[in-house]
Structure formats: C-alpha cells, structure tokens
Nucleic acid binder design. Structure first.
Lengths: 236, 236
DNA sequence: GGAGGAGACTATACGGCGTGAAGTTTTTAT
DNA sequence: ATAAAAACTTCACGCCGTATAGTCTCCTCC
C-alpha cells in the first residue's frame, strides 16, 4: 500500500495538524504577529526549516489558518441560522447576528485574521484565501436579506440598483440560491452586513471599549433597531 | 543663545519632520509594515540608529505618525462639519459622513493605521495614542447625534440607557459640549458611528470590493437610509 | 534480507529587522 | 582654543523568513 492508511501519511497529517494547532495557540496568545515559523518549531521541538516540508512558505501556512478560522466562523453562523426557526425572521436574524458577534468575541484574534490586517507581510493569494468559507458567510448574509426583504422592500421603492452595480465575484455564485432577491435586496444585504460587521469590528478593535462599558447592551439595542428598521418586530 | 532659533534646533526639527514624512511615504507605498527604521534611514542616507536620536523607539515613531494621521482625519471631518450649515442637519450629517469616507479612501493606509491592526508588533501606549484627535472625532460624532437627536428621540422612547452604561473615558470630556444629549443620545451616536465606520471599514479592507463595484452608490444610498432612519429628510 | 530511494529533518548561511553599547565626528558654548 | 554636547556611525546581538546542502530513517523492491 502507501496510498491510504500508511504510517507515513498518518504522521504527516498529524504533524500538519499540530503545526496549525500550535500556530493558532500562538496567535491566541500573542496576536497574529506571533505566528512565526521559528516559534512554532521551537514549540514543537523542531527546526524552523522542517515546517517547509509541510507548508511551502509562511504565507501558505497563514492562508491555511485563515481558511480554518474562517470555516469555524461560517460553521458558527450557519449553525445558528439553521437552528432558528424560519417562521420568525426577526428572531432568525438576531440569532445569526448574535452568533457572529459571539464568535468574534470568543475568537478576537481569528476575527482580526479574517477581517483585519492579517499577519505582517502577508498577502492574500490571488485565488483568494478561504473562498469556501467566504462564500458560506456571504450566503448567510444573503439569506438574512432574503428573509427580511418582504418586510423591507418598501425602503427601496425609489432606489434604482441594477445587477450591473454589483461585482460578479462571490455574488454570482450566491444569487442562484435566492432567485427572488432583486438587486436592491443585495443592497439590503450589504446594509445589514455593514451594520453588523461595523459594530463587531469597533468592539473587537477596541474603538468602542473606550466609550462604553456595556457593548453587550448596546449591541442588543442596535440589533433591535436594525430589525425594526427592516420592518420587523424585534424578538428576544 | 541656544534656546530658540538656533541652527541646531532648526535642523533637528527639520530632520524630525523628514523622518515622519518619509515614514508616511513608505507607508503609503507599502502599507503599515513598510515602516522600518532601516528603510527610513536608507531613504534619508542615514544609519538606522541615527533615528534613535529623534525617536526613542520605533513604536514612538509610529505613535507620532498615528497622531499626525489621526489629526488630519479630524481636521477633514471637522472642516466638513463646520462648512455645512447647521440649519440643515441631514445635509450636515451626510457631509460629515462623506468627508469621513472621502478621507479614508484617499488615505487607506492611514485609516488602517488608526483603526486597524497597526504596525506589526506595535502596542498603543498606555496614555493612548492621538488622544486629542480621537477626542475631536468623538466630539464630531456626538455632534452628529446631537443634531439628529430631536428627530430620532422617539426611536429610543422605550430604551433604558443610563450614564452608567457608558465609560468615563472620552465621553466625560465630550458630554459637557452637548448638555442636552441624554444617555440614549450617546447610544444614537454610537449607532451612527458604528454604521459609518462599518461601511467604510468594509470598503477599505476590501471586504466589500469583492461584492460590489459601485461602493460609492451603495454608500450614498446607505447614508440616505441612515438619515431617513433618524427621522430626517435625506438631502444631496 | 539487503540495497536503493524517498521522505523527514538538521546545519549552515544570507539578508532584513529593532535595538543596545561604544566610538567618532561635528557643532556649539565658554 | 578647548571642553562639552549633540549627531551620527560602527559593531554586535538576537529575532525573523528562507534557500541550499547534507544527514538520517524508514519503506519498498529485488
């Protein structure tokens, strides 16, 4: 054999996993710039160069980490979405939003890794890091908009958004899943997304912490306002 | 003499200014992590260690830069605010917001420096970097809320925000300027701020660019919606 | 079961980084 | 003119990513 189940490959997989795990631990402890090949190797009792057998370059490792973390985020919000009953759109949106914020608060370094300036010299590869997870989060946001659209449609009565106003990147892959969502519905999606991301981002980066000691209360209030501004009744 | 006007001090001031200027140029060209003492020195035909005569450490330099950049941002939004007539609150808010976004788009690296993960290992000093500029921006946001409050008050009819819900940091210094603004008005301020910052942040960090090709149109629309949600009539 | 090869890892080295200590040159003040 | 002070350089250390070459171990095939 040698194709599957070989001791060699098992070890390889395990070592690969350990590298990522140690990297995540270092990031959690010291921020994104604590991810250094040498520190990882030190932690594992190896030489830094040994890691090159598993990842072509440090950026490759970071890309993989982003993928990993991004997937965890997508899992979290997807699970929340799936758990909440579709019959209560307001509650569903609030659940999604709370899951998003909750994950971010629990994994602030991960949030930075995904949405902020990542590791020092890191440049996201052309194809785009974590395209799957990004797609899933994007789909989730579109689902929020789709759920809210019937109630919020009137807000966009006078807008003139066209499909050509939006890029074909992630959207064209997400659109088919929501055939009833018009261009203005995408604007609504970006509105919701901008709002949530903005609040969470301010909180994570500490630009809110200096101003309020109950970001929790503020977030809940803001979420209620958002839902209300979508023409829905806020639910706990 | 030797106290003022000396050739020595003039040179010192000039060199200090040149260091900052070169650092900003490097940042604009290669992002925040392009700010290295050695690169600056190289650009100036000096040794890296010479910079230690002007800034105690690299973080000191970065702190100064943040101050500088933050001040420029505060100047930009303050000017916009002052220019717009107070009699038209909607227009004033939109002008402020557009100035904020405009500055951010013109100085994306500066925006990251202020609001994102800054230079790799940088840790903001205890006293807080750029406290003056932060105070001014905070005041600007409070002014937005103050202008909108009479129209938006009804939105917070059932909220129970207390002053104790907010930190005493920047707020206590800003509050006296707006004696009529109640606790819920601060929540309104943070709402506006979160909204604007969120949109601009998404745009600057490219998490919007992959989804829309007309962030401009989206921003205007969103701004109009925000103003409308405050009970005001959107103005061009 | 022994030889050969593949794969995992180390050793060494290079250039870049921030920064400390010590030395040198230039300017200023007396 | 001389001494002090300021500006600046040199050298050094330990960190980083990474390229190259070498070593050791284990699997495979005859």
């Amino acid at each position: 054999m040698g194709s599957t189940g070989g001791r060699r490959e098992r070890l390889r997989v395990e070592t690969t996993a350990e590298i990522q795990q140690v990297a995540l631990k270092l990031m959690a402890a010291g921020g994104p710039d604590a991810i250094t090949l040498r520190a990882i190797a030190r932690e594992m009792g190896m030489t830094a160069n040994a890691i090159y057998g598993y990842f072509a370059t440090r950026d490759d490792l970071v890309t993989t980490l982003i993928n990993e973390v991004y997937t965890a985020l997508a899992d979290a919000v997807d699970a929340a979405w799936a758990k909440a009953p579709a019959a209560r759109p307001a509650h569903r949106i609030q659940t999604w939003a709370r899951a998003f914020r909750g994950w971010a608060l629990a994994n602030p370094e991960g949030f930075r890794l995904i949405y902020g300036d990542p590791v020092p010299g890191y440049q996201a590869p052309e194809g785009g890091a974590a395209p799957d997870a990004a797609h899933r989060v994007c789909t989730g946001i579109a689902a929020l908009a789709d759920a809210a659209w019937p109630h919020a449609e009137h807000l966009y009565a006078h807008s003139d958004f066209q499909w050509s106003d939006f890029d074909s990147g992630l959207l064209d892959k997400v659109r088919p899943a929501f055939p009833t969502l018009p261009p203005a519905g995408v604007a609504l999606a970006l509105r919701i997304w901008g709002h949530l991301h903005g609040l969470v981002s301010l909180e994570i980066y500490g630009h809110l912490r200096t101003q309020t000691i109950s970001p929790d209360k503020l977030f809940q209030e803001e979420l209620a306002q958002l839902v209300r501004s979508l023409g829905l009744e806020s639910e706990a």
